[in-house]
Amino acid sequence: MGALYDLLQEDYRFREGMKACINCGTCTAICPAASFYNYEPRSIMACVQQRDDKCIAELLRGEEIWYCAECMSCKTRCPRGNAPGLVITALRSLSQRTGMFTCSEKGRQQLAIKRMIGETILSHGYCVYAEHVDTVKFPEQGPVWDWIRAHLPEVMERLGANFQKEGAGNLRKIDDNTLKELSAIFKTTGALDLFDTIEKASAEKAKEMGVEFTGHGTTDGYFTKVFTENNQTHTRE
């Protein structure tokens, strides 16, 4: 048994998701990601089940583990009670902890996610925040969103929201004490360490690639690169 396998075993989700795989392929058959990407949850389960660190390290450095949609459709259908989607969550955590996520194009995207979602949770108490969402980064929001954003306080008021105000209600301002508690939880449970690891490993990768890296925000060269780049080798023909 290898060191990487031992680390996976520490994750409850891995223990819950990896029981005994009979390689039947039911998960691949039901998987929406497998019908789009060069991806097979069955082969990931087969690799991990061998407890072979070489094979696991390849997964941690590769593209595949990042294709899963975490829909958990596989959990419902596995005849052996496995959950490949949960195993993927454990593999992704380990890939980030070990810095190996920067070896793949899809893995490198974690920097953009950390800055867009991770930081918004801490600064606003929400996973996403309307003021940050524009139709340049999110064109599918459509013209109705341009209209909403141009009149955000008025539209929110019209719909009974308590936008950016104290007290209860929709899109209220989350009070300072609550945000402090949230930060304390993130610190105590290791989320801030993970954020640091993602930034540091990404900074190194940016240096190696010769791409601008400012260490914050959503406009530096590295953010833009990982947010938009697609080398077109990921999908099925």
């Binding site: 994750d11 996610i113 950390k114 949770i121 996973c127 009070d175 609550t178 989320a191």
Partner: peptide, 23 residues
């Protein structure tokens, strides 16, 4: 008013550890 995001989107984009989400 004191409740916040459950961190679900952060958790399922894998930048929020399970321990954090649980807490």
């Amino acid at each position: 008013p004191r409740h916040t995001t459950c961190t679900g989107i952060g958790y399922h984009t894998d930048v929020v550890p399970f321990e954090t989400a649980m807490t």
